[in-house]
């Protein structure tokens, strides 16, 4: 297999390996910062949706529209809107934050709505004030659904960051554009594999975190 030989040769170079590590770290940074920011934003927006029916319809509609904007367009249009440099990684971060927030708002709102009415009623009746009730009852109970959304968000972010390579900030995506320009498969294969492995590892960590946060969700009936 020439491909295997190519890959071995490609990886044989210490400079390449260092560059790969840089790209990987870039990729992690570009995909996970938006994820964390989005979770916070989505929880706040989801809360608004949950409390106010009007906001709900508007935000859900908006988040659907966000998805119609091609990621490439969003990456490149942000500099024009907020005045960052075209090559600024912030563009990718902001764009992915917009996407991921749009992705998460709906599940968060639904998870909050799915908290049984009798549970929130019981909390209110025991004298929980709204903020405390939200933080200690409704939010923890939404974690399983939120976690499912975050997992999808992390996977799609990790895969989307690559598109940023077309505007010069793509983490591992740079391997695809490099490989394509040079008609060279090795970096492309390595890029795909590293992206998959990264997605898998992050997903695993997210599952561990979720399990840590929701011991109650995995107890069986007696």
């Amino acid at each position: 297999m020439t491909a295997v030989g190519d890959i071995a040769k490609y990886l044989g170079d210490a400079g390449t390996r260092a560059a790969l590590l840089d790209m990987l770290l870039d990729h992690v940074y570009l995909s996970l910062v938006p994820l964390v920011v989005s979770v916070v934003l989505a929880v706040l927006l989801g809360l608004l949706c949950h409390r106010f029916r009007q906001v709900n319809a508007t935000l859900i509609g908006m988040s659907n529209i966000v998805y119609t904007i091609p990621s490439l367009a969003l990456f490149a249009i942000i500099p024009a809107l907020i005045g960052t440099q075209v090559l600024d990684p912030l563009n990718v971060i902001i764009a992915l934050t917009v996407y991921t927030t749009a992705l998460l708002v709906r599940p968060v709102a639904e998870a909050l709505a799915a908290v049984p009415a009798h549970v929130t009623a019981a909390a209110t009746a025991m004298g929980f004030r709204p903020l405390r009730r939200f933080l200690t009852v409704e939010l923890p109970l939404s974690v399983p659904v939120l976690a499912a959304g975050v997992r999808v968000g992390s996977v799609s972010n990790i895969s989307l960051v690559s598109v940023g390579a077309l505007i010069g900030t793509g983490g591992l995506g740079t391997l695809f554009t490099d490989g394509f320009r040079q008609r060279y498969l090795a970096p492309i294969i390595i890029g795909i594999v590293l992206t998959l492995v990264l997605a898998l590892v992050v997903d695993l960590l997210l599952v561990l975190l979720r399990n840590r946060l929701t011991p109650w969700a995995r107890v069986g009936k007696p």
């Binding site: 549970v119 909390a123 209110t124 004298g127 004030r129 009852v137 109970l141 109650w216």
Partner: peptide, 23 residues
């Protein structure tokens, strides 16, 4: 103030309303 009032009054409902995430 409602929360203060409610902390001094016990309340039991049909589905028990137990917090599923707490022991």
């Amino acid at each position: 103030d409602p929360p203060t009032l409610r902390r001094g009054i016990g309340y039991v409902i049909q589905q028990a309303g137990l917090f599923p995430h707490r022991t």
